[in-house]
């Protein structure tokens, strides 16, 4: 298998890294030269990986334009190669890449928009989960409630940004109608993304206290700590109402002592 392994390594290097090792000599030049034939594979590989990124990041692509997106993808692909045979796993580090990608530096909000799109993609494919067992929760003694920890629904994500990324996302949807102007000075946002029972995905902007509560619970802090954090950032947070809202809407699905 030694020779086959060497051949595959050279092929991958020639395609992904543009390094023309001894590989050119391994291609039979009949009519078309080996370089041209290799170029077909390079095109196919970059095209399909770029298409995979476009499918996950349509808003990001729309913000920078198709040519720029393809250019960024061509830089991204060799630096953060795919590590799975399932293309849906590819592209999770694009937001971090964009944050350090010099040509996009002026678009300060771009990495956060990309983070929102990756979170959306994850929520789309995430597992199902039954709602929280209220009967079991009722059995837990009230004086011990502060010690409980909760689990966020597998199809829920929390996201915070210093930019109005929800508004940017909304006005860049294909079916958006209305004034597409975004005021970047409008400020940041805290978001809950959650897939509902009907499989539609909701993007809920949350006040600071509510977000802090869910964030702390998602980090496996106990309920008392989560409440303290919520009140610390927003003293008027109505904790009982918010807790029951997120149990009913299915964001909190499990608890343990």
């Amino acid at each position: 298998m030694a020779r086959l392994r060497e051949l595959q390594a050279d092929f991958a290097q020639a395609v992904l890294d543009g390094v023309d090792t001894a590989f050119g000599h391994c291609i039979r030049a009949s009519g078309l030269g080996g370089g041209r034939r290799l170029q077909v594979y390079r095109n196919n590989v970059f095209l399909s990986l770029t298409e995979a990124l476009k499918a996950v990041y349509p808003v990001t692509q729309r913000l920078v334009g198709e040519d720029f997106f393809r250019y960024a993808a061509a830089r991204y692909i060799p630096l953060h190669p795919s590590t799975s045979g399932n293309l849906h796993d590819f592209g999770g580090s694009l937001p971090e890449f964009l944050a350090t990608f010099e040509p996009a530096a002026a678009l300060t909000y771009l990495p956060d928009v990309a983070r929102l799109e990756w979170a959306y993609h994850q929520v789309f494919h995430a597992a199902h989960h039954p709602p929280l067992d209220l009967a079991a929760l009722a059995v837990a003694p009230a004086e011990r409630h502060g010690e409980l920890t909760f689990t966020l629904h597998p199809a829920a994500r929390l996201l915070v940004s210093a930019f109005p990324i929800l508004r940017i996302w909304q006005v860049n949807q294909a079916d958006f109608v209305g004034d597409p102007t975004v005021d970047l000075t409008e400020g940041g946002i805290r978001l809950l993304l959650i897939r509902r029972e009907n499989l539609e995905i909701e993007l809920q902007p949350l006040p600071a206290g509510e977000f802090a509560l869910l964030q702390a619970l998602a980090e496996q802090q106990d309920f008392a700590t989560a409440c303290e954090r919520a009140l610390a950032v927003q003293p008027d947070t109505d904790l009982p109402a918010l807790f029951s809202k997120h149990v009913q809407q299915g964001a909190l699905v499990d608890f343990s002592r």
């Binding site: 086959l4 051949l7 390594a9 991958a12 590989v45 399909s48 990986l49 590590t83």
Partner: peptide
């Protein structure tokens, strides 16, 4: 094949038609 050294090209890349590749 579509991957080597943990890197995936996510394409249907041809094998050499050798006895070694056949055994593999």
């Amino acid at each position: 094949w579509s991957s080597v050294g943990g890197r995936y090209l996510n394409d249907l890349l041809p094998l050499p038609y050798t006895e070694e590749a056949l055994a593999h």
